[in-house]
């Protein structure tokens, strides 16, 4: 589904990613861990098509096609979803209106009939229940005045509505208390599907207690320095990121 090979990315004259290789297949959950500044968020943003990054080398193929040439909206239409670390507020724009525009833009791009208001509301309410989002938030402006936890839950709700093929969740656990974390994790688990891949970008192991990944990759200084199963995350938790640097040095 997703093949990243030898990806080098810079911002300005600073090289952030220095040769990433990663293959993700449908149904898989990959966790990408790493210390601050290791390039985790850069990777998420580059995959979603954020401007301001320069790909200097390497390629990303998504469902067999070159991904890097596509606009952010074209990637969204192709089924890529980014859960934001800091979801953005859009004052005055109703949450439901926003999502309806999003889903219909995607349906239109894929030659499907647009959903009418009635069908959309039915579906959205169901999904809100699935991720434990208070229905009153549906009628508020996008993320405006939401608590940190509500914003993150709203991201998972949007993901549930948009049903992406590839979901990239960037530090979805940051700023969440343990109850909110559990609810968000349950939402993600409910959306696990043999056709859907998830990339979890996280600093801490604790999210992985609730969303059990198939693979764990450790990013350090722009490279994946180690890959493994679930147990790699536990080792990291125990020994800290310093352990990897020592391991790399020897």
């Amino acid at each position: 589904m997703l093949e990243i090979s030898n990806l080098h990315v810079s911002i300005g004259d600073q090289t952030i990613l220095k040769g990433i290789d990663l293959t993700v297949k449908p149904g898989e959950v990959h966790a990408i861990m790493g210390p601050n500044g290791s390039g985790k968020s850069t990777l998420s943003h580059v995959l979603a098509g954020r401007e301001g990054y320069e790909v200097i080398e390497g390629s990303v193929r998504y469902e067999g096609k070159d991904l890097l040439g596509l606009s952010p909206e074209a990637r969204a239409h192709a089924g890529i979803f980014l859960g934001f670390q800091y979801p953005v507020e859009i004052p005055g724009v109703n949450n439901m209106y926003f999502l309806k525009a999003a889903i219909n833009a995607r349906r239109k791009a894929n030659g499907l009939k647009e959903l009418d208001a009635f069908d959309f509301i039915q579906m959205a309410k169901k999904k809100a229940g699935l991720v434990g989002l208070d229905e009153s938030l549906l009628q508020r402006a996008v993320n405006e005045g939401f608590s940190g936890g509500e914003k993150k839950r709203n991201e998972i709700f949007q993901m549930a509505v948009l049903e992406p093929q590839l979901a990239i969740l960037d530090e979805t656990d940051s700023g969440l208390d343990i109850d909110a974390l559990r609810i968000v994790a349950e939402g993600v688990n409910a959306l696990r599907d043999p056709e859907r891949a998830v990339i979890l970008v996280t600093h801490y192991q604790r999210l992985l207690d609730y969303i059990v990944p198939d693979y764990v990759h450790v990013l350090s200084d722009g490279r994946i320095v180690r890959s493994g199963g679930r147990e790699l995350a536990l080792t990291l938790e125990e020994k800290g990121y310093g352990w990897l640097k020592e391991a790399a040095a020897t």
């Binding site: 979603a48 098509g49 954020r50 401007e51 301001g52 606009s71 952010p72 909206e73 990637r75 969204a76 239409h77 979803f81 980014l82 934001f84 979801p87 953005v88 859009i90 004052p91 005055g92 724009v93 926003f98 999502l99 525009a101 999003a102 889903i103 833009a105 995607r106 791009a109 402006a141 949007q158 948009l162």
Partner: peptide, 27 residues
């Protein structure tokens, strides 16, 4: 913000529609 625009575009909304949506929300 570019943040707002990117957020909308990542959800599949074209830049043009996003600008219009943000401005209309403001007004």
């Amino acid at each position: 913000g570019e943040d707002q625009l990117f957020y909308c575009r990542q959800r599949g909304i074209s830049e043009e529609d996003a600008v219009s949506m943000i401005v209309n929300g403001f007004c």
